[in-house]
Structure formats: C-alpha cells, structure tokens
C-alpha cells in the first residue's frame, strides 16, 4: 500500500511540476487594462449591462465600446473610478446612485398581455395570455426591458425587498463601540 501511495504521489507531483513549469513558459499575457477594469467592476456577473458577465463588460470598456456608466449595481463610485481609469469625462450628477433592484408586476394593473414575458432575457417572468404575470426574483437581473414594453405601466423596478434569507444584522456603529 505504501508503495502505491508513494509512487502515485510521486507521479502526481512530477506531473504537477511539469504543468506548473509549462504554465510559466506558455503564460498568456492578457490586456492589463482589462484586468484592472475587471477589478473595479462589482464582479457579480449580473448581466444588467447587456454583456454576459463582468469580464465581457471589462473587455468592451477597455476597447471604448461601452460607456463608463454601464454598470447599474456599481453606482456612482464605480463610474467615477472607471472614468478616472479610462480618462473619460463624465457628469456624475446624472448617474443615479442605485441599490440592487428587481422587477415587480403590479397585479391590479397587469392585463396579462405577455409582452414582458416575451421581452425578459432571463425567463424571470411567469405568465400566460390573460393571466396576471409575476416575477421570479432569483432570476431577475433588473435589466428594465419589461418596464419598457409594458402597455399599462404595471411593471416597475423596486429595490430588492428584505426577506428572511437576505436580512442581516446592521454593522456595529462607532457610537456603540466608544460608549
């Protein structure tokens, strides 16, 4: 048994060393700007900017193909950091400082037209024709497409409601610590 353990460890170690050496030799240098931008972005991969994830958004930002205001969850702070990093002028007063949001369907206004259901890119809306629609909050990325298509203004974006799963103790305040 010890021979087996020893030889397999040796084999694994040798292969690991070889791969480690190969990784050093064959390392690909990515665009350092992309990596720096990715470090600024929230990294929650929410997709609200329209890119598949923060990596795609960082790539587009580095190529100046997307505006620095693209990231809704990042808020003002991220816009300011991105503008400084890319050397772009931006009017910060136009950027709303938002909290995480989800879509909501107002049930007394919904006519069950299924337009939001068809527009939703993440299949977060439950519904059928002439049935009142509802939103799966876990799947919603708050992209706002349902708000645009709704003929009766029954969909809107609201801050993510606090539930038993998402509630947390507020951070201890400085006052409490000194008193």
């Amino acid at each position: 048994m010890f021979i087996a353990i020893f030889s397999l460890t040796l084999l694994g170690g040798a292969l690991g060393l070889f791969l480690g050496y190969a990784a050093r030799r064959l390392a690909v240098e990515g665009n350092p700007l992309v990596e720096e931008i990715q470090a600024i972005l929230p990294g929650s991969q929410c997709g609200q900017c329209g890119f598949p994830g923060c990596a795609g958004a960082a790539q587009a930002l580095a190529n100046h193909e997307a505006p620095v205001t693209l990231c809704p969850p990042g808020g003002r702070e991220v816009v300011a950091l991105l503008a400084a990093k890319l050397g772009v002028e931006v009017n910060l007063t136009e950027v709303a400082d938002t909290v995480p949001q989800v879509a909501e369907v107002l049930e007394d206004l919904c006519i069950g037209c299924t337009r939001c259901y068809k527009a939703c890119p993440t299949d977060a809306i439950l519904g059928a024709a002439k049935q009142i629609h509802a939103v799966f909050r876990e799947a919603c990325t708050a992209c706002g497409k349902c708000v645009e298509v709704c003929p009766t203004e029954a969909t809107r974006l609201i801050p993510v409601p606090v539930t038993l799963q998402s509630w947390y103790w507020s951070k201890p305040s400085l006052q409490g610590a000194t008193a």
């Binding site: 397999l8 694994g12 292969l15 070889f18 791969l19 190969a22 990784a23 064959l26």
Partner: peptide
C-alpha cells in the same frame, strides 16, 4: 485518468 488530465492540460496551454 491522471496522465490523460495532465496531457489535456498541457494541450490546452499550448
């Protein structure tokens, strides 16, 4: 499997 995984990793790097 160990050997194959290592060879595949190497191929991926290349």
């Amino acid at each position: 499997i160990l050997v194959i995984a290592a060879v595949v990793q190497f191929t991926e790097m290349v």
